[in-house]
Design a protein around this nucleic acid. Structure first.
Length: 208
DNA sequence: TCATTAACACGGG
DNA sequence: CCCGTGTTAATGA
């Protein structure tokens, strides 16, 4: 693992910190569509994302889900820290959306670095802030927009994130992310296709 | 009115 | 055959 990849974060980590990261972090490459964190699981290490992105869903005990936000390159999920330090089971579900490269950092190290390094504190606070903003955005979506608008925003966000117009996703997967039924998604997508906003393919949606 | 659930048909891999 | 998709009918909020 080279230190250069850490500059990716845009935070000038102290040389000593970089050294420590290099010592304890485990570099992993993971395929798209893999569960990183399952609901009810105990977490002992947290990923720093170097490449690709991860989606974070909220799950209830019935296994119903709702997309909360995404973790992109250069970010981490600081909110998960709480759950880890408190030895509480995970209330969230993390799934890789693309192939990702991550550095897995043990939770104790993250805590240790928070008191040791100023740059790390900044990084963690910044991550908290980002997650909080995205959470508010997602709350706004649910409160103030109907399903059709939410679907449009969902697709646009995916297009931006993946940087391509053809999005590989099934109606069922969208329905899970937006916490609705597939019937509704199929109907809305069909309507959007008639309106020439999108083109439907099996297992993918093309934005026009 | 719009979402959900169940059910069914069709087609591709 | 299984899965993704499109559609309908019944029911409920």
């Amino acid at each position: 693992m080279n230190l250069e990849s850490l500059n990716f974060y845009g935070f000038s980590f102290e040389p000593e910190l970089k050294e420590e990261i290099q010592q304890v972090a485990v570099l992993k490459t993971i395929d798209a569509g893999i569960d990183l964190i399952k609901p009810q699981q105990f977490i002992k290490s947290i990923p720093l994302v170097l490449k690709g992105n991860i989606k974070i869903l909220r799950s209830n005990d019935e296994g119903e889900e709702l997309l909360l936000y995404h973790i992109e390159a250069g970010e981490t999920c600081a909110i998960t820290l709480n759950c880890c330090l408190g030895h509480v089971r995970s209330e969230i579900h993390a799934v890789t959306e693309t192939t990702v490269e991550v550095l897995m950092i043990p939770v104790q190290k993250m805590e240790e670095w928070s008191s040791k390094y100023k740059s790390w504190r900044h990084f963690i606070f910044n991550s908290y802030h980002k997650r909080m903003m995205e959470l508010l955005e997602s709350l706004d979506n649910i409160a103030f927009h109907n399903m059709e608008e939410r679907l449009e925003m969902y697709l646009l966000a995916k297009k931006q994130m993946l940087d391509k117009a053809v999005i590989d996703v099934t109606h069922k997967e969208i329905a899970t992310d937006l916490h609705t039924s597939r019937v509704v998604i199929s109907r809305l997508l069909k309507k959007m296709e008639r309106e020439r906003l999108i083109k439907l393919h099996r297992g993918s949606v093309e934005l026009l």
